[in-house]
Nucleic acid binder design. Structure first.
Lengths: 149, 149
DNA sequence: CTCCTTTAGGTTGTATGCAAACATTATAGC
DNA sequence: GCTATAATGTTTGCATACAACCTAAAGGAG
């Protein structure tokens, strides 16, 4: 039964990624790139570290994504004059527009996801999901501790 | 709200992958490799095409995974004498044992996922999830059709 | 049998995802 | 001021994920 749950989550994540990939195709963006752009859109001048803490990715991956975005003139990296380790990231006007447009499409699409589920049951679904995530986090932590002992 | 759902599914899939990666570490296997091995375990002599239809991956990806598994002597590829296009895949004894052991661990871990959710609500959760997946499939199909028109 | 299409797999190129090693810059302790 | 250490990013290597292209073999139409 719970094995089913993992498969369902994998499937759901995969479907979402595929849908967004298809939507982003004509903008020449990948899903991972769009997710990063959204973060920069919300916090102009954000640093790489801040993007990492707001999402669940890796700094190496992010570095590559940012390089590709910069190569395509979708973002700009500016060094912090005070702390030279920091790099502040800004969107170009073009990517701001793209971000707004795609976000609109994404929101429309995702409103459909709960169709066919009675409103009274939606809360149970969401709450159940949150509990599963909590259980997963606990399991991950335990496995991690076991390894270090 | 539905945006939250997609993020939750992505998170859940990610956590599961990380947990399995950690478990599989000492067996020298990746999660993707283990998933393929499970499919071969269930159907010895399975073909690549059959693995693809039972899972949601790509033949290019699968081809690479199989090559790496074969290089490590975990599987064996045998050509079909009648239809020379077909390649039947078999597990080595070593990978059979690994598959059984890891499956046991996986099952134990995953039983914990529904902890803290009242049994009466579990069904709502599962049913809601199934409906979300259905809605996703419909959306994907629509987007695909729109593209081809 | 011959040509055309389909099918099963493999190969190549680009973009992650992630661990591990590096390079720079700050900062704490002395 | 100096050194050890921590923090921030980038680079490198390996394993997917996936689109696009290629190969060989099987099947069907004529």
């Amino acid at each position: 039964m719970s094995l089913e749950i993992c498969k369902m989550m994998e499937k759901g994540a995969l479907y979402h990624k595929r849908l967004m990939t298809k939507i982003l195709e004509r903008f020449g963006l990948t899903y991972a790139q769009f997710v990063v752009i959204k973060a920069i859109y919300e916090t102009p001048g954000i640093t790489a570290k801040e993007i990492l803490s707001s999402q669940d990715t890796d700094k190496a991956t992010l570095s590559g994504i940012l390089s590709r975005l910069e190569k395509n003139a979708l973002i700009e990296r500016r060094n912090d004059p005070k702390d030279k380790r920091l790099v502040h990231i800004y969107l170009s006007d073009a990517s701001k527009r793209i971000c707004e447009e795609v976000t609109k499409i994404e929101t429309n699409c995702q409103t459909d996801l709960l169709k066919g589920i009675r409103t009274s049951k939606t809360k149970h679904f969401i709450d159940g999901f949150k509990q599963v995530l909590k259980n997963q986090e606990k399991l991950l932590k335990q496995t991690h501790e076991k390894e270090n002992s």
